[in-house]
């Protein structure tokens, strides 16, 4: 074990939330401009987060803070693992783990809004998890490597071979970052039937932890996106385009229902990914 190697994941753990927060700030600003508003400053998410840490801690029960902390830890660990150049399959289990804690945290409280949100979060996981594993399988198919470091070194422009897969990954991103039309488990905007869904019962510092975990997840998914064009300028362009696409999709759609997602997205999405994978194999 080379200790000197550890500075990369350490730097990633510090840099990822800054990156995720900035993405959130840019998203809010551009969304506001698309809606004809002036919008908050870019640094707004950081003010929000810091303020939340300073609020009175009101936990519903002993488990809620624990699950919030575990969610944050899981998300941070996933980012560190990817930055370390770790195995993509382990990363997949880490992300599943992370979501599990979020769902547990939301279902350990008596609020029906939170519980219904947890159920929907699980359904979302049901939709995107198969796609994620297919994405990793396709990366392996193309590069012959399971470890992220190896993929990055010899990847090249994976995007050219896997456009359909990238489209699926984009939809996973839309689902995972809770953008319209898939923002039914916890919307960043108020005005929905479940209030804030899984986030309803978190408050103050615990909400801040979940929020921070969400930024880690944002950064993690964008890092996976970056693997599809393994060069510094290339991945920067790809990530920027993906974020821009996310913001536009968010503003172009109303919220659809989970029934619609299960009917129209659940099978076609992995199907599309599989099609791309088969095309890679033959």
């Amino acid at each position: 074990m080379n200790l000197a190697k550890l500075w990369v994941p350490a730097a990633a753990v510090i840099a990822a939330p800054v990156f995720g927060g900035l993405i959130a700030g840019i998203d809010r600003k551009i969304s506001a401009r698309l809606q004809g508003r002036y919008g908050p400053p870019i640094l707004q998410p950081f003010y929000d987060l810091y303020k939340l840490f300073g609020k009175d801690p009101l936990a519903v029960n002993r488990w809620q803070p624990f699950f919030a902390a575990m969610y944050l830890f899981g998300a941070a660990a996933s980012v560190a693992w990817l930055a370390l150049g770790g195995d993509l399959l382990v990363l997949f289990f880490l992300t599943t783990f992370t979501v599990g804690f979020l769902v547990l945290g939301a279902s350990c409280v008596p609020s029906p809004f939170s519980r219904a949100g947890a159920g929907r979060e699980l359904l979302q996981a049901l939709v995107y998890e198969p796609v994620l594993i297919l994405v990793f399988a396709a990366i392996f198919q193309q590069t012959g490597r399971w470890d992220a470091a190896g993929v990055w070194r010899q990847g090249g422009v994976l995007l050219a071979q896997t456009p359909l897969l990238y489209l699926c990954l984009f939809l996973v991103l839309v689902i995972k970052l809770r953008k319209s039309p898939f923002d039914f488990s916890a919307s960043p905007h108020a005005h929905q039937e479940l209030v804030r869904g899984v986030l309803t019962e978190y408050s103050g510092p615990f909400l801040a932890m979940v929020e921070l975990g969400h930024w880690y997840e944002t950064a993690l998914l964008l890092m996976i996106c970056a693997l599809f064009w393994s060069s510094v300028p290339g991945s920067a362009i790809l990530v920027a385009a993906t974020v821009a696409g996310l913001i536009f999709v968010d503003n172009l759609f109303p919220r659809l229902t989970w029934r619609w997602m299960m009917a129209r997205i659940w099978l076609p999405l992995p199907g599309l990914a599989l099609l791309n994978l088969i095309w890679l194999m033959v």
């Binding site: 809606q35 004809g36 508003r37 919307s187 503003n251 172009l252 759609f253 109303p254 919220r255």
Partner: peptide, 16 residues
């Protein structure tokens, strides 16, 4: 109505 659908941008345009 637009906001109840979760269509934030339409809500803003109508209020404008």
């Amino acid at each position: 109505f637009a906001e109840a659908m979760g269509f934030e941008s339409l809500f803003m345009q109508i209020f404008r």
